[in-house]
Design a protein around this nucleic acid. Structure first.
Lengths: 109, 109
DNA sequence: TTGACAGGCAACCAAATGGTTGCCTAAAGT
DNA sequence: ACTTTAGGCAACCATTTGGTTGCCTGTCAA
């Protein structure tokens, strides 16, 4: 499990919004993921490649198209690393509270 | 809350090991954090600057030294973003299981 | 079988990043 | 007062990174 690949993959805003897109609708093709984006298909393809290498996205070929699925496991491992076992419940409640406070406004990223 | 700063701060292995160091012992000074590291003090200082800007580390000046503390909240927010409310329990159990399998060996990063 | 469509590969470019060195400020210790 | 110690600031350098364009492979439909 290559930890570094996960963090570097998450470092880019375009890749994060790709994950958001898959979180909203799982199993999209490359061209579907390109929709609404300004950059070229090849750019998106590269990003997906990094996300796959980091195991954040799993891809399945079906005929000539490729379906992409979000894999939440590496993300859960991040939280596991720096949040103490006993701290966890407290911090998660705090986060839920904060996001509820902020959500009425918007704040996408 | 600048999300991008958080992810970019986490993207670097040196910065992640700084967080590890603070997770092991909270409230360290710059020079303490430099111990055992190969890079220069200024490099570490820069890294800490990014971690502070991302709000992953909170620093308090005491006299001429500066104490650094790990803040787990932004990390919890990451998990919140891509792990569905109902998926969470399942994924966390899976991660706990996987890390238990891997832990006997070592695998530091 | 010919054309259109989904995607991959490689070369290339501008910008950001991690690191260095050198010098500066401020708080303690003697 | 002088020196040491903790840390900050700025300029600079090599490498990486995100993006582009151009071309190639494979699958489906007419």
């Amino acid at each position: 499990m290559d930890t570094d690949a996960v963090f570097r993959a998450l470092a880019d805003p375009s890749r994060r919004s790709l994950l958001d897109s898959l979180f909203a609708r799982n199993g999209q093709t490359l061209l579907e993921l390109c929709e609404g984006l300004t950059m070229s298909r090849q750019a998106v393809s590269k990003h997906l490649g990094l996300l796959e290498a980091a195991n954040l996205v799993t891809a399945v070929r079906r005929g000539r198209e490729k379906l992409h699925y979000l894999n939440p496991v590496p993300i859960a491992q991040i939280a596991d690393r720096w949040i103490g076992k006993f701290e966890r419940a407290r911090v998660e409640d705090l986060v839920a509270f904060k996001t509820q406070l902020e959500s009425p406004e918007g704040d996408t990223e």
